[in-house]
Protein backbone atom coordinates (compact mmCIF):
# COMPACT_ATOMS: atom_id res chain seq x y z
CA UNK A 1 0.00 0.00 0.00
CA UNK A 2 1.49 3.36 -0.99
CA UNK A 3 1.31 6.52 1.12
CA UNK A 4 -1.73 8.06 -0.54
CA UNK A 5 -3.66 4.79 -0.15
CA UNK A 6 -2.91 4.86 3.57
CA UNK A 7 -4.00 8.49 3.86
CA UNK A 8 -7.21 7.76 1.99
CA UNK A 9 -7.96 4.75 4.17
CA UNK A 10 -7.50 6.92 7.28
CA UNK A 11 -9.73 9.62 5.80
CA UNK A 12 -12.38 7.04 5.00
CA UNK A 13 -12.42 5.83 8.58
CA UNK A 14 -12.62 9.45 9.84
CA UNK A 15 -15.63 10.12 7.62
CA UNK A 16 -17.25 6.88 8.70
CA UNK A 17 -16.84 8.04 12.30
CA UNK A 18 -18.50 11.33 11.32
CA UNK A 19 -21.40 9.38 9.76
CA UNK A 20 -21.84 7.40 12.98
CA UNK A 21 -21.66 10.50 15.21
CA UNK A 22 -24.34 12.23 13.12
CA UNK A 23 -26.47 9.09 12.97
CA UNK A 24 -26.29 8.91 16.79
CA UNK A 25 -27.26 12.56 17.00
CA UNK A 26 -30.36 11.91 14.88
CA UNK A 27 -31.40 8.88 16.86
CA UNK A 28 -31.24 10.99 19.99
CA UNK A 29 -33.15 13.79 18.27
CA UNK A 30 -35.90 11.42 17.16
CA UNK A 31 -36.11 9.99 20.65
CA UNK A 32 -36.29 13.44 22.22
CA UNK A 33 -39.18 14.51 19.97
CA UNK A 34 -41.25 11.36 20.09
CA UNK A 35 -40.81 10.64 23.79
CA UNK A 36 -40.50 14.26 24.88
CA UNK A 37 -37.21 13.47 26.60
CA UNK A 38 -35.65 16.74 27.74
CA UNK A 39 -32.48 15.05 29.06
CA UNK A 40 -31.69 13.59 25.64
CA UNK A 41 -32.41 16.96 24.05
CA UNK A 42 -29.79 18.56 26.31
CA UNK A 43 -27.32 15.78 25.51
CA UNK A 44 -27.58 16.56 21.80
CA UNK A 45 -26.30 20.06 22.41
CA UNK A 46 -23.28 18.82 24.27
CA UNK A 47 -22.29 16.22 21.62
CA UNK A 48 -22.41 18.89 18.92
CA UNK A 49 -18.86 19.91 19.89
CA UNK A 50 -17.49 16.48 19.00
CA UNK A 51 -19.13 16.67 15.58
CA UNK A 52 -17.71 20.12 14.92
CA UNK A 53 -14.23 18.94 15.91
CA UNK A 54 -14.53 15.93 13.61
CA UNK A 55 -15.66 18.17 10.75
CA UNK A 56 -12.56 20.35 11.17
CA UNK A 57 -10.28 17.31 11.35
CA UNK A 58 -11.66 15.93 8.08
CA UNK A 59 -11.37 19.33 6.39
CA UNK A 60 -7.75 19.51 7.46
CA UNK A 61 -7.01 15.97 6.29
CA UNK A 62 -8.54 16.72 2.85
CA UNK A 63 -6.39 19.84 2.50
CA UNK A 64 -3.25 17.96 3.48
CA UNK A 65 -3.84 15.13 1.03
CA UNK A 66 -4.46 17.59 -1.81
CA UNK A 67 -1.37 19.63 -0.93
CA UNK A 68 1.00 16.76 -0.24
CA UNK A 69 -0.14 13.94 -2.52
CA UNK A 70 -1.73 15.70 -5.53
CA UNK A 71 -4.45 13.06 -5.92
CA UNK A 72 -5.93 12.27 -9.33
CA UNK A 73 -8.76 10.16 -10.77
CA UNK A 74 -10.58 8.02 -8.18
CA UNK A 75 -8.43 9.45 -5.36
CA UNK A 76 -9.28 13.02 -6.33
CA UNK A 77 -12.98 12.18 -6.60
CA UNK A 78 -12.85 10.59 -3.15
CA UNK A 79 -11.28 13.70 -1.60
CA UNK A 80 -13.76 16.03 -3.31
CA UNK A 81 -16.76 13.94 -2.32
CA UNK A 82 -15.48 13.48 1.24
CA UNK A 83 -15.11 17.22 1.60
CA UNK A 84 -18.73 17.78 0.54
CA UNK A 85 -20.16 14.85 2.50
CA UNK A 86 -18.39 16.10 5.61
CA UNK A 87 -20.11 19.49 5.38
CA UNK A 88 -23.47 17.93 4.57
CA UNK A 89 -23.21 15.73 7.66
CA UNK A 90 -22.33 18.66 9.87
CA UNK A 91 -25.35 20.53 8.50
CA UNK A 92 -27.55 17.52 9.28
CA UNK A 93 -26.20 17.41 12.85
CA UNK A 94 -27.05 21.11 13.25
CA UNK A 95 -30.61 20.34 12.16
CA UNK A 96 -30.86 17.51 14.70
CA UNK A 97 -29.82 19.92 17.43
CA UNK A 98 -32.24 22.53 16.20
CA UNK A 99 -35.28 20.21 16.16
CA UNK A 100 -34.45 18.90 19.62
CA UNK A 101 -34.18 22.46 20.92
CA UNK A 102 -37.98 22.76 21.18
CA UNK A 103 -38.07 19.80 23.53
CA UNK A 104 -35.25 21.22 25.64
CA UNK A 105 -36.75 24.71 25.83
CA UNK A 106 -40.52 24.16 26.09
CA UNK A 107 -42.78 22.47 28.57
CA UNK A 108 -45.56 21.47 26.15
CA UNK A 109 -44.90 18.03 24.63
CA UNK A 110 -45.79 17.27 21.02
CA UNK A 111 -49.26 15.75 21.02
CA UNK A 112 -49.19 12.06 20.09
CA UNK A 113 -52.26 12.31 17.84
CA UNK A 114 -50.89 15.21 15.80
CA UNK A 115 -47.53 13.46 15.55
CA UNK A 116 -49.32 10.48 14.00
CA UNK A 117 -51.47 12.61 11.74
CA UNK A 118 -48.50 14.55 10.34
CA UNK A 119 -46.57 11.27 9.99
CA UNK A 120 -43.56 12.75 11.78
CA UNK A 121 -42.58 9.37 13.23
CA UNK A 122 -42.70 7.76 9.79
CA UNK A 123 -40.65 10.66 8.43
CA UNK A 124 -37.97 10.07 11.05
CA UNK A 125 -37.97 6.32 10.32
CA UNK A 126 -37.49 6.96 6.60
CA UNK A 127 -34.73 9.41 7.42
CA UNK A 128 -32.98 6.79 9.55
CA UNK A 129 -33.18 4.15 6.80
CA UNK A 130 -31.71 6.70 4.35
CA UNK A 131 -28.83 7.27 6.74
CA UNK A 132 -28.32 3.49 7.12
CA UNK A 133 -28.25 3.07 3.32
CA UNK A 134 -25.67 5.81 2.94
CA UNK A 135 -23.40 4.42 5.65
CA UNK A 136 -23.58 0.97 4.04
CA UNK A 137 -23.01 2.43 0.55
CA UNK A 138 -20.04 4.46 1.74
CA UNK A 139 -18.47 1.68 3.76
CA UNK A 140 -18.88 -1.00 1.10
CA UNK A 141 -18.41 1.35 -1.86
CA UNK A 142 -21.74 0.29 -3.33
CA UNK A 143 -23.45 2.90 -5.55
CA UNK A 144 -26.58 0.73 -5.91
CA UNK A 145 -27.34 1.14 -2.22
CA UNK A 146 -26.63 4.88 -2.43
CA UNK A 147 -29.28 5.16 -5.15
CA UNK A 148 -31.96 3.85 -2.79
CA UNK A 149 -32.05 7.19 -0.97
CA UNK A 150 -33.52 9.09 -3.92
CA UNK A 151 -36.87 7.30 -3.70
CA UNK A 152 -36.96 7.61 0.07
CA UNK A 153 -36.28 11.34 -0.16
CA UNK A 154 -39.39 11.71 -2.30
CA UNK A 155 -41.47 10.16 0.49
CA UNK A 156 -39.99 12.65 2.98
CA UNK A 157 -40.85 15.49 0.59
CA UNK A 158 -44.43 14.23 0.33
CA UNK A 159 -44.87 14.09 4.12
CA UNK A 160 -43.52 17.63 4.35
CA UNK A 161 -45.89 18.91 1.67
CA UNK A 162 -48.93 17.30 3.32
CA UNK A 163 -48.01 18.59 6.80
CA UNK A 164 -48.93 22.18 5.99
CA UNK A 165 -52.60 21.40 5.40
CA UNK A 166 -52.81 19.09 8.40
CA UNK A 167 -51.46 21.80 10.70
CA UNK A 168 -54.00 24.34 9.32
CA UNK A 169 -56.85 21.91 9.94
CA UNK A 170 -55.75 21.43 13.55
CA UNK A 171 -54.86 25.02 14.37
CA UNK A 172 -57.74 25.46 16.84
CA UNK A 173 -57.33 22.10 18.50
CA UNK A 174 -53.81 22.33 19.93
CA UNK A 175 -51.32 24.75 21.43
CA UNK A 176 -50.34 27.00 18.51
CA UNK A 177 -46.76 27.33 19.61
CA UNK A 178 -46.40 23.54 19.62
CA UNK A 179 -47.98 23.26 16.17
CA UNK A 180 -45.66 25.88 14.68
CA UNK A 181 -42.58 24.19 16.13
CA UNK A 182 -43.84 20.86 14.79
CA UNK A 183 -44.28 22.29 11.30
CA UNK A 184 -40.89 23.93 11.52
CA UNK A 185 -39.32 20.61 12.57
CA UNK A 186 -40.94 18.81 9.66
CA UNK A 187 -39.53 21.44 7.29
CA UNK A 188 -36.08 20.98 8.81
CA UNK A 189 -36.24 17.21 8.49
CA UNK A 190 -37.16 17.66 4.84
CA UNK A 191 -34.05 19.83 4.36
CA UNK A 192 -31.92 17.25 6.16
CA UNK A 193 -33.37 14.64 3.77
CA UNK A 194 -32.18 16.79 0.86
CA UNK A 195 -28.71 16.80 2.39
CA UNK A 196 -28.79 13.00 2.58
CA UNK A 197 -29.76 12.90 -1.08
CA UNK A 198 -26.73 15.08 -1.86
CA UNK A 199 -24.52 12.69 0.08
CA UNK A 200 -25.89 9.86 -2.07
CA UNK A 201 -24.98 11.85 -5.18
CA UNK A 202 -21.46 12.39 -3.88
CA UNK A 203 -20.98 8.67 -3.17
CA UNK A 204 -22.05 7.90 -6.74
CA UNK A 205 -19.71 10.62 -8.07
CA UNK A 206 -16.80 9.08 -6.17
CA UNK A 207 -17.50 5.54 -7.30
CA UNK A 208 -18.81 6.01 -10.82
CA UNK A 209 -17.51 9.48 -11.80
CA UNK A 210 -21.08 10.43 -12.68
CA UNK A 211 -22.35 13.88 -11.81
CA UNK A 212 -26.05 13.45 -11.12
CA UNK A 213 -26.85 16.49 -9.02
CA UNK A 214 -29.30 18.87 -10.64
CA UNK A 215 -30.34 15.96 -12.87
CA UNK A 216 -33.96 14.83 -13.21
CA UNK A 217 -32.74 11.30 -13.63
CA UNK A 218 -31.03 10.87 -10.31
CA UNK A 219 -33.32 8.06 -9.29
CA UNK A 220 -32.08 5.91 -12.17
Amino acid sequence: MNTIEKEILNLKSSLLKMFLLVEGQWEKGANAIINYDQDIAEEISSSENRINAQELKIDNDCENIIALHAPVAVDLRFILSTYKINHALEHIADIAESIAKYVADHDVAYNKKILDETRLTEMLDVFNTMMDCLIEAFENEDPKIARKVFKKDKLINKINTDAHQIIIENIDKYDNNMLLYLLSSIRKIERAGDSLKKIGEEIIYHLEAKVIKHSQKNNL
Binding site: N2, E5, V72, A73, V74, R77
Partner: peptide
Protein backbone atom coordinates in the same frame (compact mmCIF):
# COMPACT_ATOMS: atom_id res chain seq x y z
CA UNK B 1 -7.40 11.05 -18.08
CA UNK B 2 -6.66 12.66 -14.72
CA UNK B 3 -10.21 12.79 -13.37
CA UNK B 4 -11.99 9.86 -14.94
CA UNK B 5 -9.79 7.49 -16.92
CA UNK B 6 -11.71 4.73 -18.68
CA UNK B 7 -9.14 1.99 -18.27
CA UNK B 8 -8.26 0.47 -14.92
CA UNK B 9 -4.56 0.22 -15.86
CA UNK B 10 -4.45 3.97 -16.54
CA UNK B 11 -6.05 4.69 -13.19
CA UNK B 12 -3.67 2.34 -11.40
CA UNK B 13 -0.68 4.03 -13.02
CA UNK B 14 -1.63 7.66 -12.49
CA UNK B 15 -2.70 7.03 -8.89
CA UNK B 16 0.60 5.26 -8.19
CA UNK B 17 -0.92 1.81 -7.65
Amino acid sequence: IFTNPKMERTENYITGR
